[in-house]
Amino acid sequence: MTEKYFKQELFPTIWCAGCGIGLAVKETAKAFKELGLDNNQISIVSGIGCSGRAAGYFNMDTIHGCHGRAIPVAEGLKRANPKLNVIVFSGDGDIVGIGGNHLIHSPRRDTDITVICINNQTYGLTGGQLAPTSAEGAVTMTSPFGSKYHPVNIQGLILANKRFFYARTTVFHIDHMRKCIKEAMQFKGFSFVEIITNCVETYGKRQGYNNAYEMLMDYKKNFKMASGKDRLEDNEIGIVRKE
């Protein structure tokens, strides 16, 4: 029922077999459908990276801009065209790494956009380098002996604001993922959905996983649903918000 939101003539997508991005794209479209949105009421803005290619598959006016700059492009678009539902759909390297400054300031201005951040903990499109979100000890192309650093606290960045909407979910918990996206889009102001996503090819295999299934099963095992909390623990998924 979500066909109308996609340029299906461009399928198959560029994403590897077993990649979780497609699941997030599909649930995003289902959220549009359940919110009763017409294509002309939505725009997707992406940056660069595997997730950045998502914008091109949506059947509406979309932007695929520079690396790290999806949020400011979306902010300009929303301010010029306030009736549009403006969604940033991009990766952790794009939004939290190179574009990190905008993640501090656009929420501070409480720009009424929704950021869907596909967090696969790596730079997948360039071959699997250390991301600011990579786990401590993660073996990547630029941390061959294991990362020495603690991953960035995305939730902390968002919760530092006066008003906020922060959701964490995974590509295993698809109904929860859709609920997070829907509620984020209904939030008046800056809303952020972090979707933990499996990149088996350039990240998972270097951490000892054999396939996408094993990664998804780990999400099932490791993440607990939380509700009504002020702050999510590292192993929790849920929504925290302050109006």
Binding site: V45, D61, I63, G65, C66, R69, P72, V73, A74, E75, G76, L77, K78, R79, A80, N81, L84, N101, H102, I104, H105, R109
Partner: peptide
């Protein structure tokens, strides 16, 4: 006039690109 004191020069140029696509001369 829509006005943003952006966080940096890069944000500013990208905002005006977004706004132009949104329909505003920027």
């Amino acid at each position: 006039i829509g006005f943003v004191h952006a966080e940096d020069e890069i944000a500013a140029i990208n905002m005006v690109i977004g706004a132009s696509l949104g329909g505003a001369k920027s």
